[in-house]
């Protein structure tokens, strides 16, 4: 007995699939809208979602974590375990993609990819990316390093770094890019960043402590070197995200990462 065996009555039922799906969609949307009608108005201070939790983060965040950016202080200090899980999910997804896209016998799809591998010399793309890639890399590093002071942080800065690397690969080809980022470097970078994160936050994970002083002085709020562990953790997260974004692009465009 297999999952896909289509007997006659199942065929007949499948004819009604679009109807059932459409009514399900309309029904779920209508149900959600009815639920919305019971919600309080948008943006009022007294709404139940603005409860003690957010007040605690806003009032004590600066004193506890030393980060001006309350969200950065929240996700990398109070809820660092959550962020560690996210970084691990990115790493695991990349591992799964590497396994899925690996092919022992090259087929038509792979030859198609290999023909697309090296871009033709495109003078406009190369000149523009010559100007842009450096600026994008610097901007990405700025966003990561100022994650505790201004909007941004490891995730957004890492995405900018990854985008810069993807632009470089598209204009100059994988062979030139692999001089400074290839599979070995990616592997070392991401594993080291995750291990760094685990080593410096693992103690508080296991002890169940909500907020644990890291021993690093918090510094003066607003300085670049303040907020204790948040800056190194932002850099670690940024490395993981940049590596993952670049690796996913290269895996899908090349089939493998060398």
């Amino acid at each position: 007995m297999n999952l896909f065996s289509l007997s006659a009555w199942r065929h007949r039922l499948l004819r009604y699939y679009p109807l059932v799906a459409l009514s399900l969609t309309v029904g779920i949307t209508a149900l959600l809208l009815v639920t919305l009608a019971a919600l309080p108005p948008l943006g009022e201070v007294g709404n139940p979602s603005h409860n003690l939790v957010s007040l605690k983060y806003i009032e004590d965040g600066l004193g506890d974590t030393g980060a001006l950016n309350i969200v950065a202080g929240m996700i990398l200090d109070y809820r660092a375990f959550d962020t560690f899980g996210e970084a691990c999910v990115l790493f695991t997804a990349t591992c799964a993609i590497i396994i899925l896209l690996r092919s022992d016998t090259p087929d038509a799809y792979d030859t198609m990819l290999h023909q697309m591998e090296e871009p033709h010399t495109n003078i406009i793309l190369q000149s523009v990316s010559f100007l842009l890639v450096g600026i994008m890399l610097v901007f990405g590093c700025y966003v990561i390093a100022n994650g505790h002071l201004s909007p941004g942080g490891g995730f957004s800065g890492g995405s900018i770094l990854g985008a810069a690397l993807i632009l470089y690969v598209n204009s100059y080809g994988i062979r030139r890019a692999s001089h400074f980022i290839n599979f070995t470097i990616y592997r070392r970078l991401v594993s080291f960043s995750l291990l760094f994160y685990a080593a410096f936050k693992g103690y508080s994970f296991f002890m169940g402590a909500n907020h644990l002083p890291s021993g690093i002085p918090l510094g003066k709020p607003g300085d670049l070197l303040s907020a204790g562990l948040i800056l190194p953790l932002n850099i670690a997260v940024g490395c993981v995200v940049a590596g993952t974004v670049y690796a996913i692009y290269v895996l899908f465009s090349q089939g493998e990462m060398r």
Partner: peptide, 8 residues
Amino acid sequence: RGGAVPIV
């Protein structure tokens, strides 16, 4: 409404 970005 009227709230600022959560940056102190």
